[in-house]
Design a protein around this nucleic acid. Sequence first.
RNA 1: GCGAAGGUGGCGGAACUGGUAGACGCGCUGGACUUAGGAUCCAGUGGCGAUGAGCCGUGCGGGUUCGAGUCCCGCCCUUCGCACCA
Length: 961
Amino acid sequence: MSREPYNHALIEEKWRDFWRERGFFKAKIHDTSRKFYYLNMFPYPSGKLHAGHGRNYILGDAIVRFLLMRGWNVLNPMGWDAFGLPAENAAIEQGVHPRDWTWQNIREFKRQFRAWGVEYDWDREIATCEPDYYKWTQWLFLKLYEKGLAYRAKGKVNWCPHCEVVLANEQVIGGRCWRCNSPVEKRELEQWYFKITAYAERLLRDLEKLDWPEHVKKMQENWIGRSEGAEVVFRAEAGQEIRVFTTRPDTLWGATFLVLAPEHPLVAELTAAERRAEVKAYQEATDRLTEVERTSTEKEKTGVFLGTYAINPVNGERIPIWIADYVLPGYGTGAIMGVPAHDERDFLFALKFGLPVIPVIAHPEGKAKAYVPAGSFPQELPRALASAGFSPREENGALFLEFSQEETDRVTDVLKEHLSSRGWAAVVGKGWQIVFAKETLNIGSVAEERKALIELQNRDPRFTSKRTVAEILWDVPFLRDLLFHAGFGTMVNSGPLSGTPGEEAFSQTVEWLSQKGFGKKTVSYKLRDWLISRQRYWGAPIPMIHCPRCGIVPVPEKDLPVRLPEVKRIGKLGLADIPEFISTTCPRCGGPARRDTDTMDTFVDSSWYYLRYISPKDDARPFDPELVNQWLPVDLYVGGVEHAILHLLYSRFITKFLYDLGLLSFDEPFKRLFTQGMVTYPAYWCPTHHWIPPKEVVEGNRCPKCGAELVVSVVAMSKSKKNVVSPDELIAQYGADTERLYTLFMGPPEKEIEWSEEGVRGCFRFLHRFWNLALSIIERAASAAGEPDPQNFGPKEWEIWGKLHATIKKVTEEFEGRLALNTAVAAIMELVNAVSEYLEDPKADAQLLRRALRDTILLLSPFTPFICEELWQRLGEGKAILETPWPAYDPKALEGGEVEIPVQINGKVRARLRVPRSLAKDQKALEELVLQSPAVREKLGEMKVVKVIAIPEKLVSLVAK
RNA sequence: GCGAAGGUGGCGGAACUGGUAGACGCGCUGGACUUAGGAUCCAGUGGCGAUGAGCCGUGCGGGUUCGAGUCCCGCCCUUCGCACCA
């Protein structure tokens, strides 16, 4: 039988404009009774879309189509994050205006959306580069300025030498530029900041309210980086107060030096005259380091002694002040106390520079060790230890002993008694003791440490080169694991707080410190203020004016927007290159003044765009507060994880700010977040010709130009690596429906996954089969009037009927729940397979067939809207799919038919019985049935059933002997 | 190093609160139709057994249970994020 073949090109072109023309995707903005705000992260329009982008937009389109059929009034807008460097770079290179370049790309994106069948409410389209949008970005800046949350400050900033632009901390990934991956440098510049740190606590606390993926919340939590500790004031001998932040105030008695960041403002003052040159040289060397170099943990510790001292308030200890680049200027107070016994970095620093180590926390596991070097003891010592109940190990003439901390005094007593007159021993665990004949020295202060060192040097000439007791002990591998630890444990050598157990150490010390006025409990955050100035043309100008008389003056709201000047060519300096832009008059005094020449970080543009969609054309205000408060927060926000910190943190901050202004009634913008995974594809690298498109690769993974063997890596699709799959080609060959179906079928949408051409063909084949099935059913049963009647069903019909309803249930639940649409597609495929098989039966129930097809078309329509709309029309349903309610499942349909019940005997499946579902639901009856079953009896043989576990509708498990 | 997620066929991946492991798709094998097919359709496909019965199988080792991919304890490995943050 020859049948009309599936012609995707024809079908898709036929329906491409249908949904838009019928207005199905236009939100009814004033009717919020059944509102649903669905939002995809808006794209940066760079070039063309590739198949990887589909993960985001096709998923969104499917969800929205589902929601529409469920009767939601869906707001589903789209816009353009249209400011940014690539446009400007393209402009500089090709001489086109960034706006033209951007809008050309936008047209391309829109063409591709249409080809995909991805629809939006285009009446709400926004572009952040247009004055009617950035006017309000500037307004936002002014509001922040008014509230003291936008400020200008001089300081070391992150500078990308490649992009020639400053970066916010969030835009530095592992010390490199987020955009171009160049190592980031430091520059001293005066820049604008937003005070996001004022919201640190709320940004952290409110994460709890969000229905977001746990790992995204965790990333934000880590980024905000709250830690509780104490600020302690040390006083320099010259009188200056040095504030130090520590999370371990309980180790305060072990501080043997202070370290300031090289950038610390007190450094100059605290430097002794004779050390000025060295200190200055070190500061300059630090400045030259890139972020990667400075923060590499592999790097050996460096630092310089300032030549002056401070006093530890808790014990009066006089300790040297150093600077070192491992102390960062922006965190805590930019100064730390060095507690080498209980902080790994401080320990390495002390070991390198010969600074004493004083243990003040007993080893948490209660372990202790003793070491007696060769020649330090007579033969009776091992015997004496043995008779005291210890079991020392003797090796190469030295003695090694492990014991528990409570036994420390007994051990030192025995050692003291039996050491030879010039011998010594070390006991570590509950602090450190150096034992000599007749004397035990506890290392509990710097003075004691010095004394012990001298005594040791007196006894062993090899120690004269050692600067600290720690160095001597570190040379004994046996002792190493107890010389340094960062755990909580009983405080020792800590004056009045000695003996405080680990669990209370922190709180007791903090209380004691504040009583004494030495310090107080504080909270520190890793989060820094958001640096928003960018030295570029293609962004929203910062609406500020620098007046020689009045200082910094904001542009009055009525003068907004501060427009980007229209220029033919853009210079490398951006706005600073354009004198006409710079010169202006001061709004306060009317005198000549200069405009700020920086533009804002594009993340400012995108930090509020979800509000603008509600009233995109309002030129009197940024958004309509009443409508915004009804539509927001966004019900479901879908985008890539790469924004887990950047965009999502900034948006939360801005929302909270606008909430505080009283303009919003909600303080979190995105109620639920879903992050889709990236799509990967092999990328081929030739050492001479760089990235080679996969299609051009010659057999045997060789370069088409030079034949060299290529390096293959499977990475996220990107234009720069030339490993993109083009939707245009896919659509030409297989159709948009096939691409959509495969995109949603290839795996769980949140996971990263590799694109597979074979997988695409599988989906193409499925659509063929579905097409053929549908035409057969239409031929046979299109006119079958009325609904199927379960009264007339045989077992086959029940099976189809049950499967149909189970599929409806499954697909509905996936859309409404975890969005694992891959499993929804699989379920629909199963249904189609089952119906195909049923269709073989010439006596198949026509009403049932028709109903099954009808519902299958509806279920599949969010995934493959073109073919479904076509078949829907051919089936003769009057309305469009999007005007038709989503099918509902009937719980009763799930209860008919038969189920297969496996029977386990002693844990192994030994038989399977087909049981009517009604019977299988009844535990007693099921039990009975199984025990009567000949198949089961045969398997049981001689065995006796001891126990029966019958789980209705699932299985029966027999225990037999 | 810290934090999180995850290890299931040749591959992508299914398996809800412990209840038939491997759904669905790819690939592969055989067949049909064809001048031909990398097109389409049909059948088979975790491993070991001869087609049987059966045995073994969800990273490894233990445990709980009638029953464990799923729960508990101890390891190994992978991926991602953070990482000199005091």
